[in-house]
Each structure stands twice: as C-alpha cells, then as structure tokens.
C-alpha cells in the first residue's frame, strides 16, 4: 500500500512539471496541445492508459469508443502530420504515437487490459509461474512425460500414434480449462467494475478489492501457464 501512495505523489510532481508548455513555457491549460502556441506536448510518462483514452478504470470497455478515440489521437499525434514542424515537435509526435500504440494494443485485449490494471492497482508486475498450478499439478506432470516420450518416439510407430491421440485429448482438456479460467475472469471483471462503480470507502469494500485483485492475479498467471503448455503441445504434435 505504501508503494502505491508513493506512486501517486510521483505523479503529482510530474503533472506539475508538465503544467508548463514545453515550447513557449506558458501555463498549460490544454490537454495534449498548448492553448497558446498550439504545439503538441509530450504525454506524461505517468499518465495511465485508461486516462489517456479518457476512459474510467474498468475492465469492461466499449471497444468502439476505444477505437474511435485511438483514431482521433492518432490523427493528433502521428508523425505524418509533423513533417514540417520543428525537431522538438517531431520527436514528441514520435514518442506520443509510440505510447498511444502501446496503450491501444494493451487495452484492446481483455487479458492484457486486466494484467495492466492489476499492475496499476496492485503495483506489482504479473507473476510468472514456473510450476504448475496446484489443481493441475498431477495432470501437467503426466502430460510433460507423454510429451517427452512422444518427442523421442519413432513418429511412424504405432506407439507414437497412441501418444499423439492421448496428447490430442490432453489438449482438448487443457483448452477447456483455459476457457473455464476465462469465464471466471469475466466474473471477476464484473465484480471489479461494480465495486468501482459503487465507490464505497468502507473497510469491507477495501477487503473485497484486495480479494478480487488477488484472485485475478492467480487466475491470470495460471491461464498464461496453461496457454504456454498448450502452445508447446500444439507445436510438438504439429
């Protein structure tokens, strides 16, 4: 929690530093452009992607609105429109466009969006799982063995064919698991958004918030783990 407060302080400072136009040094009132000299301003490094698109920090977002805003900001920032401008403006346009593209790519995909939100809210980078999730432990160990055996087998043999068939079944099962996890994530997303909408500052709300974030993080990292296993499996039997 401490880390989080610290983060906010940082941002305030940066926003203050940015309240001056970087070209004409006048007080800045505009959002991305100085009202006085009409020149483009660098997007603050600490502006989160949601704010960048003028969206609330929610996990359900209207992708049509997101796309429209992305196109609008692309027209504002893209280097194509800065060809005749100063070097300073050209480099701001390049930096802003690159940031905008990353922001759009992140928010467009529901999983990346959730990972990003988790990062913002819980201040932690996503966990990278190195061992199988507890409820899949046995299943995945066995799968690894089958995979190894298949890799070493003579592909034209009857044995390989049996292994391949088994791997196909495993794949179907794992994909089913992945879909389950995604459905559970959807539920958590909904709960998160509802909690934010209520905006309560009670002890209970805080506890729920912590719980949702924790569950989200666990399922996200399990899902990534399973997804990587499936990719590996698909590549091996292809």
């Amino acid at each position: 929690m401490n880390g989080h407060t610290h983060h906010t302080d940082d941002r305030r400072e940066l926003q203050m530093a940015r309240s001056m136009c970087c070209h004409c040094q006048s007080e800045m009132a505009g959002e991305y452009f100085c009202d006085r000299c009409v020149k483009v301003q660098p997007v603050s490094k600490d502006l989160d992607y949601f704010s960048c698109f003028g969206l609330p920090r929610r996990l359900a977002i209207d992708t049509q609105v997101l796309e429209a805003k992305f196109y609008e900001l692309s027209r504002a920032f893209h280097p194509d429109f800065y060809q005749n401008k100063s070097d300073a403006e050209q480099s701001i346009s390049l930096g802003n466009s690159a940031m905008l593209n990353t922001a759009y790519r992140t928010l467009r995909d529901p999983i990346q969006r959730a990972e990003y939100l988790l990062d913002l809210e819980a201040g932690a980078v996503k966990d990278i799982r190195t061992s199988p999730p507890a409820d899949l432990f046995e299943e995945i160990l066995e799968l690894q063995e089958t995979l190894d055996e298949f890799r070493e087998s003579d592909r034209s043999s009857q044995h390989a064919a049996t292994l391949r068939a088994k791997l196909h079944t495993d794949r179907t099962n794992l994909e089913e698991r992945q879909r389950d996890m995604e459905a559970r994530l959807q539920q958590l997303f909904g709960r998160w958004d509802a909690l934010q909408d209520r905006g309560e500052a009670t002890e209970q709300a805080r506890a729920e918030r912590t719980l949702i974030l924790k569950d989200m993080r666990d399922i996200l990292s399990n899902r990534t783990y399973v997804k990587n296993i499936v990719n590996d499996l698909v590549a091996t039997i292809a």
């Binding site: 692309s74 027209r75 893209h78 194509d80 429109f81 060809q83 005749n84």
Partner: peptide, 16 residues
C-alpha cells in the same frame, strides 16, 4: 498520395 499527406496536402487520410 503518402507524399501528399506528408506535405500537408491530403489531411483526411492516415496510414497506420
């Protein structure tokens, strides 16, 4: 056309 966009002639098209 892209050259015209860069020189500010065409303003309604943008290639991403």
């Amino acid at each position: 056309v892209q050259a015209d966009i860069l020189s500010g002639g065409t303003t309604d098209m943008l290639l991403l």
